[in-house]
Nucleic acid binder design. Structure first.
Lengths: 256, 256
DNA sequence: GGGCTTCGTTCTATATACTGAACGGCGTCT
DNA sequence: AGACGCCGTTCAGTATATAGAACGAAGCCC
C-alpha cells in the first residue's frame, strides 16, 4: 500500500507509526495483535509497544478487553485539517457551488497523489440516484476521469515512470494496458477533458478536467452522472459547465 | 493540546510523530523548522530527522524550497476512515437523514473525547443562514449542547475529575464555573436534553440529546438553530424530533 | 482433565535513534 | 561590502527503543 521510498536513514518508529495508521485505515474494524503482526511484519514485542503508545495517545483505540485494536478518534481531526488549510480548496468553493447548481450532478475536486486521486471536496447531487463519495477517498488515477485529466498534463515518459505496465481493473470497462491509456491521454490533451465510461463504477460516467494553475497539474474537477440520466444535450451542457468552471478556478488560483 | 497521559514507557518517536501531526493540524499553513521547533520543543536535529521521514512518507509536505512544512495528503485518508469504520455512524445514517428532513435545521452526531466533542456526521440545513460545521471538528464539551448532554450521563464526581474548575469562555454566554455546570447537568438529566444558549457561537442555539446505548454515553445528536429563526412552536417540534431520533438510534445501536 | 496450541505480555543485550555542538549557506544590517 | 545573525543541515557519543526468546494465561482438542 504505502510506497517505501528508497531514501536514506529514516526514523523507524515514525515510519511504523504512520504505516500502522494506514493499516488500520485500510482495514476498518478491530484487529488482534497477532493479526496486525501478520500484516505489517514487525516483531510482536516492538509492535506491542507501538500500539500501547498510540492507544495512550488516542490515535488507536482498543475494545473493552484491551486486546483488539482499531483506529482512534484523534486521527480524525488531523485528516480534515488538510482540507481546511488548503488554499485551493478554499478558493474553489464558490466555483464548485456554481458547477453543482449548473449541472445538478455530483461534483468532485480531487488531487493526484502518486497513482491515486484523492477527493478534496464534493458537491452531492440531490437526485435520488447518486454516486457514493466521501472526502479523503482514494481511487486509482487510471480508472477515473479526474485521474486521466491530470495524467494528461504529464509527458508520456513521466506517465510510464509513474504507472505499472498493466493496470488494475475495477470494472469490465477499465483499461488495463498502460500504452493504451497513454494513447487516450493524447486524445484528452486535444479535446481538453477526460471521460470515464464506467471504468471505475458500473453505471456511472464521469467527465473530468484538470486545473492547470501549475504544470504538471495537481488538481482536477469532475462531474459524475448515472448513465441512466445521460442525454447528448445534458452531456454537452456538462462539458460547457466544466470548461467554464476550469476558467473560474484558474482565475481564483492564479496567485497560489 | 494533547494530554500527555502519565503512563509508563512510551515509544518516543511515535509520540512525537502524532504530536507533530496534531501541531500541523492545529495550525494550517506552512511552517519553518525553527517555528515548529519553537512550538513543540524538540531538539532541532531530532525534529529535522522526523520531518524528513514524514515528508518522504507523504504525511507532511514541503513547499518548493523544501524548508517549510505543512500537513500532507496522506493524513487525509486515515482520518476519514475512522468515520467509515464506525458502526454507530453507519447505523445512525437513516435517523440523521430523517431528523434533518423533519427539522430542516443543521444536525450533528458527535462523540465525547476527553473534554471535547468531535463531530462524526452532519446534515447541513439548506437555509441561507446556517452554522459552519465540518466532520472532525472539535469543540469544548462544556459549551455545547452535545457535550452537556453527554456529561450529564456521568456522575458529578466523574465530571469533577474530567473538567478543570474554571472553563474557557467562547462567548459572553459560556458558563465558566464547573459547579454551575454540574447544577445544569442535574437539570439536563431531568428534562432529558441539553440546551446551548449561544454559549459556543453567538446567534446560535443548540439542542442536544445523548444516545445512551452504553453508560456513560459516548455519542449524542444535536440540532442547531439560528436564534433569528427560533419560535416556541419550532423549538417544541425540534425537541420532539430529537427524542424520536434518540429512540430510533437506541434501537439501531442496541446490538453494538 | 491434561497436554497442546495460541496469544498477549515481560525481559534484556544490542542495535540505533536522539541530542547538543559544530558547520555552512543565506539574508541583512550598518 | 564586510560582518553579523539566523536557519537548515551534518556529526559523533550516549541514552533508549528494538527484537528474539522466555513467560503466563486462555482456549481447544483428544
Amino acid at each position: 500500500m504505502a510506497v517505501a521510498e528508497g531514501a536514506g536513514s529514516q526514523v523507524k518508529s515514525a515510519v511504523r507509526t504512520v504505516e500502522l495508521l494506514e493499516f488500520f485505515a485500510g482495514r476498518p474494524g478491530m484487529h488482534s495483535l497477532a493479526a496486525v503482526q501478520e500484516s505489517v511484519g514487525y516483531p510482536k514485542s516492538s509492535l506491542y509497544m507501538l500500539l500501547r503508545t498510540l492507544v495512550e495517545l488516542g490515535w488507536i483505540e482498543t475494545d473493552a478487553t484491551g486486546t483488539r485494536y482499531g483506529i482512534g478518534v484523534r486521527a480524525l481531526l488531523v485528516g480534515t485539517s488538510y482540507i481546511d488549510g488548503d488554499e485551493v480548496v478554499a478558493a474553489a468553493r464558490p466555483t464548485l457551488d456554481r458547477l453543482s447548481d449548473d449541472t445538478s450532478e455530483t461534483i468532485h475536486l480531487a488531487r493526484l497523489d502518486g497513482t491515486s486521486v484523492v477527493y478534496l471536496a464534493t458537491r452531492q447531487s440531490q437526485h435520488y440516484l447518486r454516486p457514493f463519495t466521501r472526502v479523503g477517498r482514494r481511487l486509482p488515477a487510471h480508472s477515473t476521469s479526474l485521474g486521466k485529466a491530470l495524467l494528461a498534463t504529464y509527458t508520456d515518459e513521466q506517465v510510464r515512470k509513474l504507472l505499472p505496465e498493466t493496470l488494475e481493473p475495477l470494472t469490465e470497462h477499465t483499461h488495463t494496458d498502460r500504452e493504451k491509456l497513454i494513447e487516450e491521454l493524447a486524445q484528452i490533451r486535444e479535446q481538453g477533458f477526460a471521460v470515464d465510461r464506467e471504468e471505475n463504477t458500473l453505471g456511472l460516467r464521469c467527465f473530468g478536467i484538470a486545473v492547470p494553475y501549475r504544470t504538471p497539474a495537481r488538481d482536477a474537477v469532475s462531474c459524475s452522472v448515472p448513465v441512466a440520466r445521460l442525454t447528448p444535450a445534458h452531456e454537452q451542457m456538462i462539458k460547457d459547465a466544466l470548461f467554464d468552471a476550469r476558467d473560474r478556478l484558474l482565475l481564483a488560483t492564479r496567485r497560489l
